[in-house]
């Protein structure tokens, strides 16, 4: 199985998002893709415009939740969807670039908007096989 990948896991009312990667930054990138895929099929979103995000937090889990919430904020205030994500990390500072386009309900056929990322099942882990995993539940 590819090192860099994302998946959803089940939560009774909402959705869990999980990313795996060869580095912590890559796992955060994949977790973001999992969150974006809650809203829309990523293949339908064209990378027309780039936006930048920076966050900083006292620990990994807070940083993950802040990062996903920053994406939620950009979707809501720019009325955009994103499909491409790049994350760089320097300790507990994160710099990211997102590419996407304005929402077109008819073309994108989005599922549900994310209200916020939560601390439920929130974990950032270095795994025995040398890869990273980042996950939490998002409220929809």
């Amino acid at each position: 199985m590819a090192t860099e990948r994302w998946e959803h896991f089940s939560h009774e009312a909402d959705i869990g998002v999980r990313g795996y990667g060869g580095s912590k930054a890559a796992a955060f990138e994949q977790a973001a893709r999992a969150a974006l895929a809650v809203v829309v099929d990523l293949d339908t979103v064209q990378a027309r415009e780039r936006i930048d995000i920076a966050c900083e937090a006292p620990d990994d889990v807070l940083l993950l939740v802040d990062w996903l919430n920053a994406i939620v904020f950009e979707i809501a205030t720019r009325q955009m969807l994103f499909s491409r994500v790049e994350v760089e990390m320097d300790g507990l500072r994160l710099m990211a670039r997102l590419w996407g386009e304005l929402i077109d309900l008819d073309r994108h056929q989005p599922g549900v908007e994310i209200k916020g990322a939560t601390y439920t099942e929130a974990r950032v882990e270095y795994r025995p096989d040398g890869t990273w995993m980042a996950q939490c539940v998002v409220d929809v």
Partner: peptide, 8 residues
């Protein structure tokens, strides 16, 4: 307007 929305 979203058929995925309906299915969910």
């Amino acid at each position: 307007r979203s058929m995925r929305g309906v299915a969910e």
